[in-house]
Amino acid sequence: MSLTVLKPDLQPSAPAPAPKAPAVVVKLPTPPSPFMARLAPMLRSLATNVVPPLVMTLALLLVWQILCGKPGATLPSPLTVWTEANDLITQPFFNMGSQDIGLGWRVMVSLQRVMIGFGLAAVVGVLMGCLIGQSVWAMRGLDPIFQVLRTVPPLAWLPISLAAFRDSSPSAIFVIFITSIWPIIINTAVGIRNIPQDYRNVAAVLRLNAFEFFIRIMIPSAAPYIFTGLRIGIGLAWLAIVAAEMLTGGVGIGFFIWDAWNSSRLPDIVVALLYIGLVGFILDRIVGALGNLATRGTAAS
């Protein structure tokens, strides 16, 4: 019953929107503002990526402030850190004498050590890994030794290296080297062992010599594994530098923490921890990005 009533009602209303149509067409040119069109998704992704960490950081700071803000607290609260270590936070690169320098400079000194130690570890580690991956005999002989040595904590190497080098700076570099080399060796070896037989066959048909095989096949084919090892290695190297510098002294960020502890400047330590964390994060990302750059197209076959 009601359907039959509705039908005649719809009929006259249908042509009604027709005269309005031209007005809508005129309005269309407003959206094509290419700048805004590109900005909107960028802002949206920024919001999804930045807002959650920001909220969580603020929440953590708040909890920290509540826990350490009351009188008699053993650790400094965020506000105390901000007021007492203000110069360290706001001016990373001041220089007022040999021991009174900004944390940025100290990080630079530590980074230099890490670069030397880690650089050596990367070169030696990749070569050793290739040897172990390629030769069954070398693997059988060296793998057990490496598996034992890699579990030795970084600081345990320090007395031995101090005795061997009789100087703090090469000892610190050696500790970094010996800490970061194991994952590089082991990952490279796995990568070399996983080179598909097809690529070896191609190399055999082309009669590539050992050096050409190393450069043209082994390194590119194992690159994803090598970079995984390097990424773990740089993380360990950064862990080791702080420990090594605490004992060997000098200008680095690790020694700064030890020095601040001895003179009871807890807020300075908190700032230094933040620096170490951020630099470690950046180092990890840099090696990761290098790996992505170097292994483009290698993952898919």
């Binding site: 598909p196 097809d198 690529y199 066959n201 191609v202 043209r216 096949i217 590119p220 084919s221 690159a223 292994t295 483009r296 197209g297 290698t298 898919a300 076959s301």
Partner: peptide, 9 residues
């Protein structure tokens, strides 16, 4: 080769 064996890099 059956599976082409081109070097992907």
């Amino acid at each position: 080769f059956q599976n082409h064996s081109l070097l992907p890099w």
